[in-house]
Amino acid sequence: MNALIDILASAGLWAAVLRIATPLILGTLGALLSERSGVLNLGIEGIMTFGAMIGWLAVYNGADLWTGLLIAALGGAVFGFLHSVLTVTLGLSQHVSGLGVTLFASSFAYYVFRLMVPVTGTPPTIEPFKPIDILGLSSLPFLGPAFFTQTAPTYVAIVLAVVLAYLISRTPIGLAIRMTGENPHAAEAQGINPMAIRYGAVIAGSALMGVGGAFLTLSAFNSFFPTMVQGRGWICIALVVFASWRPERALFGALLFAFFDAFQLRLQTVLSGVVPYQIFLMIPYLLSIAALAAMARRARVPQALMQPYRRGER
């Protein structure tokens, strides 16, 4: 019991929560934006992998870190475009197209990585983002090290969640996205082009996923290795349902999830030798499944999610 309280009272735990949450926030927002327009993007796992690789590769070849993130966003957008062509223009199954994009994006990422970076004993590293100090807040007792020792992309991700919440619920473009996701035929009757909206939402969402992946290699770690995304993309898809397709809840969901993850990581060291570490590693996946089961019926699903839109065809 004391061990648990020690964990909760350590600033390191709370700092880890924000760090773990960042790629999930970005990925979940990306998936959410796309789904609000009616397109499920299961390409997320591969897009995050590609973003992690291409962002890292850019920095490894001399680009600065922000350029690395930008390139990851562009890389994500390219795969988002591919997914849009398949699911919006051709109206193919969003499930299968998304899985195809994941298989392609991740294997292409590994191919490019192997081609560009020779095999060595230890993976090559870059100089990742450093924690920034906002207005000297990091020197506050406890709160400082717990919440204000993050790298810049973490704060950007949190701000993005707020911006996206505003964009979706309060702006004309947000209304167009929501209408397209609920009823594309009605949206078209209002002079909105559902195809264009879906393309935009999927591409922008995929860019966010790419940045989420790049956070792993440019801030959380400093190198790239295959399978490093470890199902985070699928967890984001589950978090969208948990968040009932609302950005502010997505932020909360990602933080809650990251809290459990950070907590189990520390519990592992306390209970090492007693409980196999694999049990702890299963927790995030099992939690996601539990969250889905708890929320699936209650969540407000965009009514046209996964329904292709073809002009004049119902």
Partner: peptide, 18 residues
């Protein structure tokens, strides 16, 4: 790199869909 096999297989899935 042998990953070209994974790339080709994934590409054949996408082109099959089309």
């Amino acid at each position: 790199p042998t990953y070209i096999a994974d790339v080709t297989v994934a590409l054949s899935l996408l082109s099959m869909l089309i």
